[in-house]
Simulated assay, not measured.
Amino acid sequence: MRVVDLSHPIVSGMQVFPGDPEVTITIAAHLAADGFQVAEVHAGTHTGTHLDAPLHTVEGGASVDEINLERLVGPARIVRLPAVGPGHTFGWDDVEAQLAELGSVAMVLFQTGWSEHFGTELYLRHPAFDGDIARRLLDRGVSVVGVDTLNPDPTDLSGAEVDLPFHRELLGADGVIIENLTNLGSVDWADPWVTVLPLPFLGMDGSPVRAVAMQVDTPAGE
């Protein structure tokens, strides 16, 4: 079995969505002094590679603990996109050719290459995805979508009222969004088996995930 970790490490001071809680990790108990080590973690529910539950943007939407875990494990289609500049918006025409014959695909993950900018100011000016992509994926039975950017919608740094059409379409239909994926370029085989399992925060709007892509070799003769 080959395994590729699609998750950013969680460390103190790591980049978060503007205005979200900062990440701090401190040692609360020390092995030498206490006989064991325990860390104290302060972080938001949308820290690092994470899952957006419908409750994130939908009044009365499902919370992270209410999502059926079977939806978050299965074959994924990785859509490889060309390099673009800051603020570019991908439309359906840019992705359609790679989304034929989805069959039993459980989730679609978009690779823009923007994860290489994680931790920099440029990461905030990432490419985005038109809300029409979310609608068309839902029409094809796909309700779990991941991106290797901070946000499938543009991240507005002006302080203006937030407009999130991709979130509105997907989460409004009880879908799930995975943000801040990384290492998608290291998955060099078709339709990997992917897991994006959250922590069971009761009644909460999201959770960090350990996103993992796997290639399982079939034994000879099977």
Rank of each mutant, 00 (worst) to 15 (best):
L124Q: 06
E66W: 10
P192S: 09
G206M: 01
P9T: 06
M107S: 06
V11P: 15
G206Y: 02
V144C: 08
N68S: 15
I177H: 03
F118I: 07
P219Q: 03
D5E: 12
L202Y: 14
I78S: 05
L102S: 05
D153F: 08
I178Y: 06
A76Y: 09
A76E: 05
S7Y: 06
D139K: 06
V58L: 03
I177G: 01
L181T: 07
E222K: 11
V23T: 15
L202G: 11
S143P: 03
D65N: 12
V144W: 00
F118Y: 11
S143H: 13
P9I: 00
W114H: 09
G61V: 03
N180K: 08
D188I: 03
E22K: 00
D5H: 01
W92R: 01
A29V: 13
T47W: 06
F166D: 04
D156G: 10
E22V: 13
V11F: 14
L171G: 05
L99E: 12
L150K: 05
D130S: 02
F17H: 13
N183Q: 09
S115T: 03
S186Y: 14
V196R: 02
N183S: 08
E222T: 13
A33S: 14
R210A: 05
T155F: 01
R125I: 09
P21Y: 03
I27E: 15
G203F: 02
H30I: 15
F36V: 13
F201Y: 04
V23P: 14
D20I: 04
G87S: 12
A33H: 14
I133Q: 07
I10Y: 11
A213F: 07
I27A: 14
E169I: 00
D65E: 10
A213D: 04
V11L: 11
S186A: 13
L197A: 00
T120D: 13
L150G: 05
H46A: 09
W193Q: 14
D156R: 04
V145A: 04
T49I: 08
D174P: 10
V108D: 01
L197S: 08
V209P: 05
H46Y: 10
Q111A: 12
T112K: 08
H46T: 08
G60I: 07
R140Y: 11
A128F: 05
A62D: 13
G203V: 01
T26K: 10
